[in-house]
Write a protein that binds this DNA or RNA. Structure first.
Length: 270
DNA sequence: ATGTCCCTGACCCAGGGA
C-alpha cells in the first residue's frame, strides 16, 4: 500500500511562473501535478526544467498557446492520455485526462479548466456565460460514460464556488459570475451525475469558509480575505475512502510573482 | 470593487481575457 500525492493548480502562465512550479514540486513533492491556464503552446512548455526534478512524464493540451491550456506533469507514468473538445470549440484547450497506476489501483484523472464566464450572468446577452453553462451541461453528459470501467478523479479550476461558505460573502456574490445559483446548481449536477465526493468538504465542514483563489486586485489579499473556492478535487464514490491529506497551499499565493490561485493537494491510496 | 496581471500583435502601447 502506498500513497500517490496529486496537486491541481491554475498557474496563470506556466512560462512566467516556471520557478514557482519548481518550488511546488520541490516543497510539496506531488507525484502528479495538474495545471490549468498554462497559456503555452506545447512546443514552448518547459518540459526540460521539470524533467530535471524527476518529472519525466508530461502530457499537454496547450492549443495555440495564448489562452487557457492544461497540462499534466508527473513522475509516474501516464497511460492512455486523452483530450476532449467541449462545446464544439476548436482551439479551446480545457481538458486532458490520463490513467495513473496499474491493475486494481488504476484510476483516471480528468483535468478541467471550465470557462470563467465573463462578467454578466445572463446567457441571453453574454456569450461567455452561455458557453460556461453549456460546458457544465456537457461535462455532466460526458463524465458518467468517460470512466471506461475505471474509477476517476476530477480536478481543476472549475470556476464555480458552489456553496455558501465557498465565498467570502454569499449575499454579495449571488449575482457575481462564479457563485450565481444557476452555476452552482449546474456544477452540483455535474458532481452528482457520478456521485463524486467533493474532497475539500469531506475534510472541511460546509460551515467553514474555504477558498482557493484570491483576486490580484485586492491591495492586501490575505487581510481582505475575499476569496472563492474555484479549484476542486472530486473522487469517484468507489475511491473516496482512499483519499486523505487534503490541503490548500495558501502560502503559495505569496510566493514570488504568484498565481491568483493556490494549489490544492490530496493523497490517494493505491 | 474598475482594481491587477498576463497574453497577443504590433511596436514600447492597446485590447482581450480572467
Amino acid at each position: 500500500m502506498r500513497q500517490v500525492k496529486i496537486a491541481t493548480w491554475n498557474i496563470n502562465s506556466v512560462r512566467m511562473r516556471r520557478l514557482i512550479v519548481e518550488r511546488l514540486l520541490n516543497e510539496a513533492a506531488p507525484d502528479v501535478l495538474f495545471l490549468q491556464e498554462t497559456k503555452c503552446q506545447d512546443g514552448q512548455f518547459p518540459v526540460a526544467d521539470f524533467r530535471k526534478l524527476g518529472y519525466d512524464h508530461v502530457a499537454l493540451n496547450g492549443g495555440r498557446g495564448g489562452y487557457h491550456g492544461v497540462a499534466i506533469v508527473s513522475r509516474l507514468p501516464l497511460a492512455d492520455v486523452q483530450v476532449r473538445e467541449f462545446c464544439e470549440k476548436v482551439g479551446d484547450p480545457r481538458h486532458i485526462s490520463a490513467v495513473i497506476g496499474e491493475g486494481n489501483s488504476a484510476f483516471r484523472v480528468h483535468n478541467f479548466y471550465v470557462p470563467a464566464g465573463g462578467d454578466e450572468p445572463d446567457a441571453t446577452i453574454n456569450p461567455k456565460f452561455d458557453h460556461k453553462l453549456r460546458f457544465l451541461d456537457e461535462m455532466k453528459d460526458f463524465l458518467p460514460t468517460a470512466g471506461g470501467g475505471l474509477p476517476d478523479v476530477v480536478v481543476g479550476d472549475l470556476n464555480v464556488a458552489p456553496h455558501e461558505h465557498d465565498v467570502w460573502s454569499h449575499k454579495a456574490l449571488m449575482k457575481i459570475v462564479s457563485h450565481t445559483p444557476i452555476e452552482c446548481e449546474k456544477l452540483e449536477a455535474v458532481r452528482s451525475s457520478v456521485g463524486y465526493v467533493d474532497i475539500a468538504r469531506r475534510f472541511v465542514p460546509l460551515e467553514e469558509k474555504l477558498y482557493s483563489w484570491w483576486s490580484y486586485r485586492a491591495k492586501d489579499w490575505r487581510a481582505a480575505d475575499k476569496g472563492r473556492r474555484l479549484d476542486h478535487i472530486w473522487a469517484h464514490p468507489n475511491m473516496a475512502a482512499r483519499v486523505s491529506d487534503f490541503r490548500i497551499l495558501k502560502d503559495a499565493r505569496d510566493w514570488d510573482r504568484p498565481s491568483d490561485h493556490a494549489p490544492v493537494v490530496v493523497s490517494i491510496e493505491v
